[in-house]
Amino acid sequence: MMDSELAALYQDVIIDHNKSPRNFRELEPPRREADGYNPLCGDRLTVYLRVEDGHIREVTFQGSGCAISLASASLMTEALKGKTVNEAQALFTQMHALLTDRNGAEGDVELGKLEALAGVRAYPSRVKCATLAWHTLQSALEGEHESITTE
């Protein structure tokens, strides 16, 4: 039997997105992309974005990692599609607070299904699993390590 803290971490939605990650594919160019790597646990993700007129038209990912990192990436792609870049930035800030702030996220952005990730707050060693996809997104948006392909 799972205790309640563990059940809060491995909610059905996490198990489901780990088993069948959404938008789990490479995006055809033109695209932006960024790689995320967690050297401590070996989780590796690539996030692909197609941004047109300040809107995220497509967002996909590929990679390998634990259930928390895969579900976080999968839920992220679902949440971002159709958002403006500004809305995506606001969501990033809100998610960062949700995952790392002991008081939880305080903001006016609707998190919806993403709330399922709040359970990692109780697991300091697992927070990085959940934030990996979001930091990778940030770097794709900011174009820090992006490789923009226009073909």
């Binding site: 799972m2 205790d3 803290e5 563990l6 971490l9 491995y10 088993k19 646990c41 990692g65 634990c66 259930a67 928390i68 697991y123 697992r126 699993c129």
Partner: peptide
Amino acid sequence: DGIHPHDLGTLLDH
């Protein structure tokens, strides 16, 4: 099969 070692580590800890 189907369980990443890090998830296993957390589940076993509990």
